[in-house]
């Protein structure tokens, strides 16, 4: 398998708090990697440090052979690293379609020049509609984002990622807070992407789903990797059971 991204000795400190503390990680092309770990383990921070929301305190992020760490988030997005947010951030006043169109412009936001380029061209709308179809959002196409339920918003997040034709898809808890029915829909969607050989990193608290969807799982605790491997192996790792699964049982 070809290596798509390599993270070397990544560190993200907030003052004295070591949210990510020397992490190594490889993401291969066409692979689905799961990241699990207790609340506050540093999963979202890992995404933010990779995607340029934060400048890492140290370490390297190598994407397709190029060092990209420390570059701003909009540059990462243009390079093809697309992520969803744990808390959905739709354009509340715009329709679902317009939300997807806005994301489709990833290579169009060129400053003053973008003033002279129309956003809603037939091609862009067709592309956005295709993604809506794929993510099961066609029925709410013309609804305002503020008027649809969380299940739709979660899939909208994924739609906005897909419409950018990303090389790497990073999903931050796409099932959190959803009903079982909605969780199934999102899981089906991720499985579809997997079939199409997309490279995916998935943060998910729901263990059965993570086990079902992922080829490989990394377990994070206090900013450090405590285990990594195929789902069956990770499931039986003693450290993992103590740090994460055990806690999950208590909850």
């Amino acid at each position: 398998m070809n290596e798509l991204m390599r993270v070397e000795d990544l560190k993200m400190y907030f003052g004295g708090l070591k949210a990510i503390d020397g992490l190594d990680l490889v993401i291969n092309e066409g692979e689905t990697l799961g990241i699990i770990g207790p609340n506050g383990a540093g999963k979202t921070t890992l995404f933010n440090a990779i995607c340029g929301v934060y400048k890492p305190t140290g370490g390297k992020v190598i994407f397709k052979g190029q060092e990209v760490q420390g570059q701003p988030a909009y540059v990462m997005a243009r390079k093809g690293i697309a992520r969803t947010f744990q808390i959905s951030k739709p354009l509340a006043d715009l329709t679902i379609l317009d939300n997807v169109v806005a994301a489709a412009g990833v290579h169009e936001y060129t400053g003053m020049r973008s003033y002279f380029r129309k956003s809603h061209t037939p091609e862009v709308i067709a592309k956005a509609e295709a993604v809506l179809e794929e993510t099961g959002l066609t029925e709410v196409r013309d609804k305002k984002a503020s008027d649809v339920s969380l299940g739709y918003l979660r899939r909208l997040e994924i739609a906005r990622v897909l419409v950018t034709d990303p090389e790497l898809i990073m999903l931050d808890e796409p099932c959190a807070g959803l009903s079982n029915f909605a969780i199934n829909e999102v899981t089906e969607l991720i499985l579809k992407l997997k079939e199409r050989k997309k490279s995916i990193v998935l943060i998910e608290h729901n263990l059965p789903i993570t086990m079902k969807v992922c080829d490989r799982i990394m377990v994070l605790s206090y900013g450090k990797k405590i285990a990594e491997g195929p789902p069956e192996v990770v499931k039986h790792d003693k450290q993992v059971i103590e740090a994460y699964l055990g806690e999950e049982d208590e909850a």
């Binding site: 006043d93 169109v101 973008s114 956003s119 906005r160």
Partner: peptide, 26 residues
């Protein structure tokens, strides 16, 4: 402007700057 990518960029920024950056907006 409102029909251009420029307008889309402003609308996205107005909504949430972090999300706007995540789809390529400087």
């Amino acid at each position: 402007m409102r029909r251009s990518w420029f307008g889309m960029a402003l609308a996205s920024i107005n909504n949430d700057a972090a999300a706007a950056r995540s789809f390529g907006i400087d």
